[in-house]
Computed example of a mutant assay.
Amino acid sequence: MTVNDFRKPDFEISPQFINRWSPRSFVEKDIPEEVLFSVFEAARWAPSASNMQPWRFVIARTQEDLEKFHSFIVPGNLTWAKHASALAVIISETKTVRGENAWHAFDAGTAWSHLALEAANKGLVTHAMGGFDKEKARQVLNVPEEYALHAVIAIGFQGEKDALPENLQEREIPSGRRPLKESLFEGTFGKEALK
């Protein structure tokens, strides 16, 4: 089976959007530094409100640092995330010199999207997870209070489905998306743009 067996766009788009998905099976293999840093370089070029660039990443790629990250990932996610080559926590600065930054989370999400697409372009897979203890992560990683923690991102090379616990094997497929007409309204909420 291929990604196209699970995902069919309603309109023609670049295959990179269909081919990128979030597997859980990772092969324990080092990512060359220039490849790993290139995915963060892509995130660097994400659009940003007023060019504030509020996102930051704290990464782990040594055994010592990875074990620190393992301490705040929930057990269900840790069963597979511990095999990723690198982990990153995406955070964003919530304040500016002018006060609250209402766009910090939006911008951080855009940076994550750039990272995920570039990782796929480089032959890597990524999986962002919300299943982690944010307060413990803040303490372990020494993240200042003015930064919001959003997700832990597993980055690496895709492994075989059989390497996962049985309960996760059935979920190791690209997820679909609702039809575009259910997400796109015209003129007012609820008025279909597509018939």
Rank of each mutant, 00 (worst) to 15 (best):
63 Q>H: 09
131 G>K: 02
142 N>R: 13
85 S>Y: 01
83 H>A: 05
178 R>I: 12
158 Q>W: 02
115 L>M: 13
159 G>R: 01
102 A>W: 07
67 E>A: 12
52 M>K: 15
78 L>N: 12
149 L>H: 02
80 W>V: 07
150 H>E: 07
49 A>I: 00
100 E>D: 14
92 S>H: 03
108 A>H: 01
126 T>M: 07
64 E>M: 03
62 T>H: 09
172 E>R: 12
107 D>F: 05
128 A>T: 05
158 Q>Y: 01
120 A>L: 10
176 G>L: 11
149 L>V: 07
61 R>F: 03
123 G>F: 00
137 A>E: 07
120 A>K: 15
109 G>E: 11
133 D>M: 00
171 R>C: 05
56 R>N: 12
159 G>A: 08
67 E>M: 08
155 I>S: 14
167 N>C: 09
52 M>S: 09
87 L>Q: 05
75 P>F: 05
111 A>T: 09
134 K>D: 02
75 P>G: 08
98 R>S: 13
67 E>H: 12
104 H>V: 01
55 W>Q: 04
162 D>H: 11
87 L>F: 08
83 H>D: 10
85 S>P: 07
164 L>F: 12
96 T>V: 03
82 K>Q: 15
129 M>G: 01
106 F>L: 07
98 R>L: 08
50 S>P: 00
65 D>T: 15
67 E>K: 15
93 E>Y: 08
152 V>L: 11
87 L>D: 07
79 T>S: 14
74 V>C: 09
107 D>L: 06
66 L>S: 09
54 P>C: 05
116 A>W: 01
53 Q>L: 01
89 V>C: 08
145 E>D: 15
140 V>L: 03
162 D>F: 04
114 H>T: 00
111 A>N: 10
139 Q>P: 00
145 E>L: 04
146 E>A: 02
125 V>M: 06
104 H>W: 05
159 G>I: 06
176 G>S: 15
50 S>A: 08
117 L>I: 14
170 E>G: 14
79 T>H: 10
95 K>E: 14
92 S>F: 01
102 A>G: 13
171 R>L: 15
104 H>C: 12
174 P>M: 02
72 F>Y: 07
103 W>V: 04
103 W>E: 06
69 F>T: 01
124 L>D: 06
129 M>I: 14
166 E>K: 15
129 M>C: 06
171 R>D: 13
95 K>N: 11
93 E>W: 03
124 L>N: 05
137 A>C: 07
125 V>L: 00
116 A>Q: 11
75 P>W: 06
136 K>H: 04
70 H>N: 13
152 V>E: 12
91 I>K: 11
172 E>S: 11
68 K>L: 14
66 L>V: 08
126 T>Y: 05
124 L>S: 03
136 K>Y: 02
148 A>T: 11
130 G>W: 03
154 A>R: 11
141 L>F: 10
119 A>G: 10
110 T>D: 01
79 T>N: 12
52 M>Q: 11
46 A>D: 13
166 E>R: 12
151 A>F: 06
173 I>W: 10
104 H>D: 09
137 A>I: 03
150 H>N: 06
68 K>S: 10
